[in-house]
Design a protein around this nucleic acid. Structure first.
Lengths: 394, 394
DNA sequence: ATGTAGGCCAGATGCCGACAA
DNA sequence: TTGTCGGCATCTGGCCTACAT
């Protein structure tokens, strides 16, 4: 599982090898991001983009593109995944090549059994949101005690003061060196020399996060996640995102019509919700009968790169865009949240994002499920086994 | 012709008003950039992009998109133009909405008579390429004498030393203040206080250019043009440019098939050659019979934002991409240049970029022209009048 | 346990004329 | 005419501890 000279790749058998360190990429992408394995089937929901595009396009040009050939979902085979990081911002993104699949044949089911791959969090890492002091020109970086002891090589505490040089590599294989010192009253771990050039070169500010991970070879890797600063109005995202999204819709429509592959870019930290879903995950969700008042849990990322589940209730089921994407399941569930810090959580979610909280009484009998989701020709009857594994997962 | 509070717009009757200062935008775009007026007909040559896309796509994914419905050119009505500037880089670009036109009807000819609009250079402006001293932290900006006397408000030379504060606005309406002082031995104009923050905030380096223009209200405007630095490999341009270009091809193909409008972005300083050509300019070029050995002139931009013509000879006529865009006229002329500083000038150009150098003996009789470019059904016979105006223009 | 402020020194910033191309 | 350098005053950057939360 080891790539020759650049860390190791969890999915190296399936993911094309790139110079990007895959473990660091996933750490930067966050704990909730899991890319489907190459060769699997995925569901691509174009309206995930359309929603955002329509708003900005209408502002800009009073014109909304329409692609009548494009269904609200598109089942594809994932031909290729490549990991990238923007050299300016270190923003991580993935490039996927998708081949539309027309027939819902047996191969589809087999491939769907490849299932989801959990994105393993690196075993040893920490993530800290930068404070004003961390980013000031006046001083260095204050390392949380547990983090320093877990991740950094142990200091020689017989020295006065204990200190060493740390070397870490970022996603572009650029090397950064820091002086790690343990001093002050009370004693603390600090990064001094080298820290300010890192901060200024990467253009980091208070609120952004840095993460250090230690790989199997004890090498230090250094990633970052920028805070979601509001984009300046009429920014380059007009080009790089809107135009891209329009292009994605057009390319998907074209690819579906011609049975040809197309490429899209997935930026996990820019788009809050997935628009490429592993077919297994989608199928699993389709066995859930969503209903008003249904209780569910959903995972969110914490500031320290962990996950936490919040509970909510389905308050409505309706099309997000009844005109252009009627009957689409993309964010068709309106939800309320138990905890009142509401602004942070979305008011609309999709069925495959949530985990229903079920009591045995709420299990729908299989025959009801089949009547709502009739078995496709050539699709073997796997309802029970999937149903079982589904409940076992919860 | 004046917009209420933000400079004036040369094309204000036709170009939608934006918060971008149009005069400064055109100055930054360069003397050779002229946008066609809204409402006119333009020819869109998709392969201008395809050429670049194919190379990078094959590197990335071993997959070249193909859009069989897309002809090598697409006649469109220009519905809208908006001017923008990237807030990070100040790179100027235009956003155009194009409606494909299927019929080559009379309206097309009338619209084509709207002709080209010359991009007027601002009357009072100067452009200087920054030296190492200009960008060093050690000092300020040395203003060329003629430039300072032409553009800046006159100094009070009775002061010792003569000095004043200059205030200028950039494309984002951000205000910059500089101390303008006339001192030294020999005397010279310098910008001191305020200059270094401008340099560092805009991230300018030796080789980049700044330009000061004075508008009709005597206000100073401040633009910049970055040197063509080589892009870092696998940069964000993979997203913002390649994906965009693919999207443009797909969107154009879709729009042509559905007779619907599409939007594209035109970055005049990134793409060396036009891919949106005013129909009048195209038609005019089509009355030129290109032949091996033909002499021509072509305009290029000088470093100081002027233009100069170089002479060359047509050395070959061949398809740029014989497989996918057979018979396309986009850069189908291979050329040699008279002056031997060859590397700077392209080896392939398109017919509408050049000005043939003709002697009376080389004028083709009209009947020959007609046999090569047969009159379209419904297209009135305007050959002679256009032919005349063409030669008069030279 | 860790964020921020004050002290203090070294090195960078930035204004100047000299000189040369 | 204007690019670069040496001289020099000033200010910021950056390492340290103290103190507060």
């Amino acid at each position: 599982m080891k790539a020759p000279s650049n860390g190791y790749l969890p999915n190296s058998a399936e993911v094309e090898w790139k110079t990007i360190n895959s473990e660091l990429w996933h750490a930067c992408a966050g704990p909730l991001v899991s890319l489907p394995p190459v060769g699997s089937l995925v569901v691509y929901f174009p309206q995930g983009h359309s929603e955002q595009v329509a708003a900005s396009m209408q502002k800009q040009t009073n014109f909304t593109p329409s692609y009548p050939d494009l269904q609200s979902k598109l089942i594809c085979r994932l031909q290729n995944v490549a990991l990238h990081a923007d050299p300016e911002t270190d923003e991580v993104y993935a490039q996927m090549t998708l081949q539309p699949v027309n027939k819902y044949d047996k191969e589809a089911i087999l491939a769907s059994d490849m299932g989801l791959r959990q994105s393993r969090q690196p075993t040893e890492f920490f993530c800290k949101t930068l404070t004003a002091s961390d980013t000031s020109t006046h001083g260095g970086f204050s390392v949380p005690r547990r983090a320093a002891e877990k991740i950094f090589p142990p200091l020689d505490y017989s020295m006065q003061p204990p200190a060493q040089e740390l070397v870490a590599k970022d996603l572009h294989d650029t090397t950064w060196a820091f002086r790690h010192i343990y001093r002050g009253q009370p004693k603390r771990h600090l990064l001094t020399t080298g820290w300010s050039v890192f901060i200024s070169t990467k253009r980091l500010f208070a609120g952004d996060s840095v993460l250090f991970i230690r790989d199997e070879r004890q090498d230090l890797l250094l990633g970052l996640r920028r805070a979601n600063r509001q984009q300046p109005a009429l920014s380059s995202s007009v080009i790089s995102s809107d135009s891209m999204h329009i292009g994605i819709l057009a390319a998907a429509a074209n690819a579906a019509a011609n049975n040809s592959p197309f490429t899209l870019f997935y930026n996990p930290r820019a788009s809050a919700s997935e628009f490429v879903i592993p077919l297994a995950q989608y199928n699993k969700a389709m066995y859930t009968q969503a209903s008003l008042g249904m209780r569910f849990r959903m995972m969110f990322e914490t500031e320290e790169s962990g996950v936490r589940r919040y509970m909510g209730t389905i308050t409505g089921i309706s099309d997000l865009d009844p005109v252009r994407w009627k009957g689409s399941q993309w964010r068709n569930l309106q939800v309320g949240w138990d905890e009142s810090t509401a602004g942070e959580r979305p008011s609309r979610v999709s069925l495959w994002e949530i985990e229903p909280v079920v009591s045995p009484f709420y299990i729908c009998p299989p025959q009801f499920l089949r009547s709502k989701f009739p078995r496709q020709p050539g699709m073997p009857g796997v309802g029970h086994s999937i149903l079982m594994s589904f409940y076992m997962d919860i």
